[in-house]
């Protein structure tokens, strides 16, 4: 498997590994049967993600995209973080092999599922933003 230097960097030295205690939001997607699970925990203050951590069971690209996705949402406002796409994560990593693109969807969905929980809890879902959660209904493994 040919991975870019950025993927290898984020795989070998993943950023933001762990779980935030008393996190304001958390989301877990994937399943062990398919070989990948990602759990994201977020610390949110005044509508801004001040910290993000992850734990991932999965292949190299699943781990690298988890690391990059948490980097990309840290310091972002919630509505900005919601616009994170797997494509943007993959691009930030210098691209992923085509058969690995679905792994990057895992990271996008984990972030969104954490945010969805937070939005629900704080009654923040509006007609304007609800479409941003649409993709959560898809199974990452259908996204080849």
């Amino acid at each position: 498997m040919q991975y870019s230097d950025q993927v290898m960097d984020h795989f070998m030295n993943p950023r933001n590994v762990g779980e935030i205690e008393n996190a304001d939001a958390s989301g877990t997607v994937g399943n062990a049967k398919c070989g990948d699970i990602m759990k994201v925990t977020l610390k949110i203050e005044d509508g801004v993600i001040v910290d993000a951590k992850f734990k991932t069971f999965g292949c190299g690209s699943a781990i690298a995209t988890s690391s990059m996705a948490t980097e990309m949402i840290k310091g972002k406002k919630l509505d900005e973080a919601l616009r994170l796409t797997n494509k943007a994560v993959a691009e930030a990593l210098g691209g992923l092999p085509p058969i690995k693109m679905h792994c990057s969807l895992l990271a996008e969905q984990a972030v969104k599922s954490a945010l969805l929980a937070y939005y629900k809890e704080h009654d923040l879902i509006t007609d304007e933003n609800k479409h941003l959660f649409d993709k959560l209904d898809e199974d990452a493994h259908d996204a080849h």
């Binding site: 498997m1 290898m8 795989f11 069971f57």
Partner: peptide
């Protein structure tokens, strides 16, 4: 608790060439 491709990738990084039966 861990997945085979990521084991292979790290092993490869350290110079060992092996294989796995994982889906990836």
């Amino acid at each position: 608790y861990i997945e085979g491709e990521s084991i292979l990738l790290m092993l490869d990084h350290f110079g060992y060439e092996c294989s796995s039966g994982s889906a990836c």
